[in-house]
């Protein structure tokens, strides 16, 4: 791109779209509320003014739907950023936290967190444990990538194989340990936002803030890494340090999101590729753009899952996988990506 889209524009448009998405997402569900009612509840809590709203609407919107929407937005944001960062640092146009096996590694930690976390604190412990396992998983992915080399297809296949196998192991373990504190199989493959609470959203916000905020100083180096690791080193990028840091940050955010919302697939692929199309390849703007596209994608998918389930809930990850899988096929069929 000869003129880069400004960061300010990305943030303004992204924020406006996010506010609209949040208003929509807290209004839909088994009890339908008018957006004006749910907006009234939000304003009651966010601004120092009183707007009349029923206590029932308040309980539904503020205590149940709002933490769920916040967890969806934060998970989507960090998964979207993971997508664009993995796509550029691994030079793999279809890289995604799930496709490289990162989500599955984080699941191991999250499972232990739910299981071993002290009773009521289990879900919060799962977010922290997921984050720790995510960092370890990300460094493993980086190490594998350096061994397998720069072949995107081969690397993605290793990630899919190892990731599916590990994810199945985690799901099987969740059945075997038979403990009500541990989420069921669907959570480990298709995510779940049903149990989201404010404390979980709080821990997740901290991890995602560190993850995305910490990535910003490395965005220019990530651009240069697109030359390839060796040429990037020749022009002065400390490749090992940059990769080690961004992979840890990506692992932290993705891991925390797995602990909070389970494995939600294809968000990085969709978030990263759509951000690339909208703002171009400079990570300085692609990272914030992917945070917004990822957040909107997951929250929108959750809205579809709640409305489309006709009284039941379709797990958010099923919806993202239906849409994301189709998008991947379209990308390859239209030769938008070289694989």
């Amino acid at each position: 791109m000869s003129h880069k889209p400004s960061l300010l524009r990305v943030v303004v448009i992204g924020s406006a779209a996010s506010v609209a998405m949040i208003a929509l997402a807290v209004s839909v569900g088994s009890v339908s509320l008018a957006p004006s009612d749910s907006f009234g509840v939000l304003l009651n809590h966010l601004l120092p003014i009183e707007i009349g709203s029923s206590s029932q609407a308040d309980a539904i919107v503020w205590n149940i739907r709002m933490p769920r929407v916040i967890v969806a937005m934060l998970s989507g944001a960090t998964l979207g950023v993971a997508g664009t960062v993995l796509q550029s640092s691994l030079k793999n146009p279809i890289a995604d936290a799930q496709l490289v096996g990162l989500s599955a590694s984080a699941s191991v930690g999250a499972l232990l967190g739910f299981w071993l976390g002290y009773a009521a604190n289990g879900p919060k412990v799962a977010v922290v444990a997921g984050a720790v396992a995510g960092v370890a998983g990300a460094w493993t992915v980086q190490w594998l990538a350096s061994r397998v080399g720069g072949e995107p297809t081969r690397f993605a296949l290793v990630g899919i194989g190892a990731g599916l196998s590990l994810a199945a192991l985690v799901a099987a373990t969740s059945i075997a340990i038979h403990d009500p504190r541990v989420p069921d199989v669907a959570f480990w493959f298709f995510g779940g936002l049903g149990a989201a609470t404010w404390p979980v959203a709080g821990v997740l916000a901290l991890a995602v803030g560190v993850s995305i905020g910490g990535t910003v100083p490395f965005t220019d180096s990530l651009d240069v890494l697109s030359l390839g690791h060796q040429p990037a080193k020749h022009v002065g990028v400390n490749v090992e340090r940059v990769l080690g840091a961004v992979m840890a940050l990506v692992g932290l955010g993705v891991g925390a999101s797995v602990g909070a919302a389970g494995v939600i697939g294809f968000v990085g692929l969709v978030g990263g590729r759509v951000a690339l199309r909208l703002v171009g390849p400079h990570q300085r703007v692609a990272v914030p753009a992917a945070a917004f596209t990822g957040a909107l994608f997951v929250t929108g998918a959750d809205v579809i899952g709640r409305v489309g389930g006709r009284g039941f809930e379709v797990p958010v990850g099923l919806v993202t996988t239906i849409l994301g899988g189709a998008y991947l096929v379209w990308l390859i069929a239209r030769r938008q990506v070289a694989v």
Binding site: D220, V235, G236, L276
Partner: peptide, 21 residues
């Protein structure tokens, strides 16, 4: 190789240590 940037940007990467991107 596949580098997703335009020519001018790729040439400018050569000056990374002095001028960033």
């Amino acid at each position: 190789s596949n580098i997703p940037f335009d020519v001018r940007t790729v040439v400018g990467f050569g000056a990374f240590i002095s001028d960033g991107i």
